[in-house]
């Protein structure tokens, strides 16, 4: 999932200063899973903002609503009927959600309430960790299901570096050395020979080409109304 964290409340308050009627808009997908922008968090943020507004004697009206996916047009369309009632949308979606809404409503300011963090997994309650940088050319097969581009601090494809000690990374003893994990995993299923070859330089044009990356699939076109 895409993970995110709420911005500091003061930063949010500063951004909404010019607006009177604001819709705090939650997103029911990834950011709900990581407890940053779901229905519950949206209600909490809206109420905090209302309270702060009241205490400072500001005349501000904050409504709230949560849609299933801010990043998909057919869900965003639900706002068509209500969008005119607001001066601004305070989006608790990820960066994709904020931009999808901005794209749909060119006249309406859309303010991000979250900092989008990474593609990650839920390790435990309240604990998420990055596991994919979306490089566009997955190499997990070669590295036994551990991604060195994401999890090695130096993104080595031919690691480990000289800073691997007792299974930990040199940058922080809390961080496991990705290469130790790779070697352990490949040893477990007898595939350590995959590391004898030299992996060539990564083709980063698949990650950061000219402008944003796109996926166009003709077989899927027409199925979305």
């Amino acid at each position: 999932m895409i993970t995110a964290e709420q911005k500091p409340i003061d930063e949010i308050r500063e951004m909404i200063v010019p607006y009177k009627r604001i819709l705090a808009l939650g997103c029911g997908s990834c950011v709900a899973e990581c407890a940053a922008g779901g229905e519950k968090e949206t209600a909490m943020l809206a109420s905090t903002l209302r309270m702060a507004g009241k205490m400072n004697g500001e005349d501000v009206d904050i409504s709230e609503k949560t849609i299933d996916r801010q990043c998909v047009k057919e869900f965003v369309i639900q706002l068509d009927d209500v969008i005119d009632q607001y001066d601004a949308i305070l989006s608790l979606g990820c960066g994709a959600g904020v931009q999808a809404i901005a794209d749909m409503y060119p006249e309406v300011p859309v303010i991000p309430a979250l900092n989008t963090e990474f593609i990650g997994e839920t390790k435990d309650q309240g604990y998420w960790v990055e596991s994919c940088i979306g490089c566009g050319d997955c190499m997990l097969y070669f590295f036994g299901g551990v991604c060195p581009l994401t999890r090695c601090s130096k993104q080595l494809l031919n690691g480990p570096c000289g800073g691997s000690m007792d299974g930990k990374c040199e940058v922080n003893p809390e961080v496991p050395c990705a290469w130790q994990l790779i070697i352990d995993r490949l040893t477990n299923f007898g595939a350590l020979d995959r590391l004898e070859m030299i992996y060539p330089p990564k083709d980063w044009s698949k990650k950061q080409g000219a402008g944003p990356r796109k996926i166009i699939r003709e077989d899927q076109q027409g199925s979305i109304s």
Binding site: K154, Q155, L156, N158, Y199, P200, P201, K202, W204
Partner: peptide
Amino acid sequence: GVFDLDSIQFVQ
């Protein structure tokens, strides 16, 4: 941190 190449790829 750039790390576009790693040290081995650089040697190569």
